[in-house]
Every structure is written in C-alpha cells, then in structure tokens.
Write a protein that binds this DNA or RNA. Structure first.
Length: 271
DNA sequence: AAAAGCCCCTGGATGC
DNA sequence: TGCATCCAGGGGCTTT
C-alpha cells in the first residue's frame, strides 16, 4: 500500500502527538519481515524525540537509538489514547505515556527494526543504498538524467528500484510516467534530456499532490487517525485498465513488468 | 555489475 | 455454498 505519500501522511498524522513521549512498553505480535534486533523491554524508558521519513521508512528518533518502521504492502499505523484489544493482524505496540502507536499489517511484509543510529550497520543495510528524496530539494534534474544514462532497464523498473529517487512505488510510477508522456517500457538510458526533465517534474508533482490528498486508499490504507486518502480518485491510469484515457479517450492498457502491473495510455505515452 | 526472478504472507475478488 | 486461482501499495536475496 504505502508509497512515499502514504508514509508521509502517516508520519504527519502522529509525529506531533508522540514526540516527547516516554516509552512504557513495546510489545510484539507475530513475526514481521525482520526481527526487531533488540529485546522489546529494552525500549522502555526511552524518549521519542521526533519522527522523520526516509523513502518509505518512518524513522523514530529515540533517546537511546532509532526505530525504523516500514509498512510493507499492507501495513498501517494507528495512534490510540484508549487502546482497543489487539486484533489478529496487530503485530507491534509502542505504548507511551502519551498514547500507543500500533502497527496493523495483515501480510506482515512490514517491519520494525531497532538500530543504535543511522550509522549502525543494521540501519545502513536498509537505508544505505537509497536514492535522493524527491520532495526535499535535493532532487536535481541533471543528476537524475545522469543516473538514467547509466541504466538500461525499463524506466518503470528504474523508478521502482529507488536507487535514483526514493518513494515512487507501483501507483506513482505509472502516474508519473503518464504525466511525462513516457512509455513505461522505454529503456532508461534512451530517455532524452527534455523528457527526463519532464519526468523529474512529474515525479515531484504527483507525489506532492498525493500527499495533499492524504495519499491513495485502495483497499484499507489509513493514517494514524484512521482517515483514508483520496488521490486514487485522481489517478490517470493506475487501476484503470480498459477504461478511457482521461486525456485522449484511448483505452488504458496494463502489462506486467517484474511481476507487477503497469498501466499506461498507448497514445499519450508513445515512447 | 546490472538486471531479472523468486519469495515472504494474508485476504478479497472472480470464476467454475 | 465451496473450492481453486489470481491479484494486491514492497523489496531483499539469489540467480543469470
């Protein structure tokens, strides 16, 4: 579910309320993608200094380290003052004096990992290879173009890989390529400079508009207050196979790339 | 070394 | 109603 917009919306929905809290207890449910890397009880007494985001990771700065939270495909987080009983898909609770942060994740592709700092090998393994943040001003068209020139894979795959720019997942890759008028199968190194510039702008545009709309709620995504997003209503191609293109009325097509669905308009995205 | 495939897991939708 | 099949927002690891 969660790509950059959903993770950022999630972060904003609870960061202020948990910052300054003291952890009372951490509880684990069924195993997530990776082990926590510390005893849950060792988190007790630590203060939450703030919540940042890096790519699709939430980074909770603690007085004694760093908690990396990833929502995987089906994860979401809720922040409770009155904690309901844990459901079968609730797999992590961070109980503090200001409320409890609970991770709900049916498929358990998500993870909560403790590291001493970002320099900790545990953190570096997960964050070290990530590309630049698209919405932080450090995402430059020139560097983006240079990165594309080095890769022969399909542009959709290059966007998803997150090594040039982070946070673009399956929905927003299709959307950004539509906005830029680029065919998802085009080898990255074949994209001209002006077209790369359009794609660069499209990535920023689609991600920032999605954040404004609260992200995309396809099945069950919600922020920490249980509120869904609305960007799915504005999707130009994602999930619209067989429907008319919103620009030219041609039939939107779907193909598989790396066992994931890609959506595009064969007329608006000729190459 | 880049690129392509393979998994991890559960549940909802669809088809027979 | 029951059962099989396919599909889903991610991404690390292994194999080419």
């Amino acid at each position: 579910m969660p790509e950059l917009p959903e993770v950022e919306v999630t972060r904003r929905s609870f960061a202020d309320r948990i910052t300054g809290a003291t952890i009372r207890e951490a509880r684990l449910g069924k195993p997530l993608r990776w082990p926590l890397q510390c005893a849950p009880q060792s988190l007790a007494g630590m203060r939450v200094r703030g919540v940042r985001r890096r790519g699709k990771y939430l980074l909770m700065d603690l007085s004694g380290g760093l908690l990396l939270v990833h929502l995987g495909m089906s994860g979401s987080v809720m922040f409770y003052h009155q904690l309901p009983p844990a459901g079968v898909h609730d797999h992590f609770d961070l109980e503090t004096d200001l409320g409890t942060l609970r991770l709900h994740d049916p498929r358990r592709f998500g993870a909560v990992v403790f590291a001493l700092s970002e320099a900790d090998p545990v953190a570096r393994k997960l964050l070290g290879h990530l590309g630049v943040e698209p919405l932080d001003g450090g995402f430059e068209p020139t560097a983006f173009l240079a990165g594309l020139r080095l890769r022969k894979a399909a542009i959709k795959q290059v966007l998803l890989a997150g090594e040039l720019v982070v946070g673009v997942g399956n929905i927003y890759a299709s959307e950004a390529l539509f906005l830029a008028g680029i065919r998802p199968t085009t080898p990255a190194h074949r994209i001209s400079k002006p077209r790369a510039a359009r794609l660069h702008a499209a990535v920023i545009d689609v991600l920032s508009r999605a954040v404004e709309k609260g992200g995309s709620t396809l099945r069950d995504f919600s922020n920490a207050n249980g509120e869904g997003g609305y960007f799915q209503l504005e999707a130009m191609v994602y999930g619209r196979a067989g429907a008319p293109c919103r620009v030219c009325a041609s039939t939107v097509r779907t193909i598989k790339q790396g066992q994931r669905s890609t959506f595009f308009c064969p007329v608006c995205q000729k190459r």
